[in-house]
Design a protein around this nucleic acid. Structure first.
Length: 160
DNA sequence: GCCAACGTTGGC
DNA sequence: GCCAACGTTGGC
């Protein structure tokens, strides 16, 4: 996979945690409900099957990267926006133009230990991560292979 | 719980 | 097309 890319997905563990992903009965989950155009474009246009994902817990104690996941289905229509009863309903979405996209992801493995936001901020190799840029709220962010590998190394995972 | 930063909406 | 108001995110 010559052009494998790497991403960071944020999730509030009170809403959906890495354990929830690992415990999915089917082994994978729809990453639905993203309602931000920039994040949508990344999912719709740039993600490929096999891409690596750092799974980050926001609004958590501690805030940290807790596990590794991967893309198992490339961007497709997020039909949840069409359902008025769905939490992620968007009144502007139509069958002809659902507006939003999602990917499917699979939990790979937990890190040996969580890598906290504080540690990421202190690591000079990770100083350019979007995650620690002031005001950066994007829930899906690209990361470089070097950053991806560094976080895994910090988490004490030797699997790759 | 607070609030800064940011995206979106809507009046003009 | 500008921009103030508003809602949300997410660290603190």
């Amino acid at each position: 996979m010559p052009d494998k890319r790497y991403w960071l997905f944020k999730s509030e563990p009170s809403a959906y945690s890495f354990d929830d992903l690992m415990n999915e009965p089917d082994g994978w989950a729809e990453w639905d409900g993203v309602r931000n155009y920039q994040a949508r474009n990344l999912m719709r246009d740039d993600m490929k099957v096999g891409d690596g994902i750092l799974f980050y817990h926001s609004n958590a104690k501690p805030m940290s990267v807790v596990g590794i996941a991967s893309v198992v289905r490339e961007g497709y229509d997020d039909s949840h926006g069409l359902d008025p009863k769905d939490d992620h309903y968007d009144p502007k979405a139509t069958k002809e133009n659902p507006i939003w996209s999602m990917v499917d992801i699979k939990g790979e493995r937990a890190l040996g230990r969580p890598v906290t936001l504080d540690e990421i901020k202190l690591n000079p190799k990770l100083k350019d991560m979007l995650l620690i840029r002031k005001g950066m709220r994007l829930s899906i962010q690209p990361v470089t292979k070097e950053e991806f590998d560094e976080v895994i190394a910090m988490g004490g995972d030797s699997a790759n």
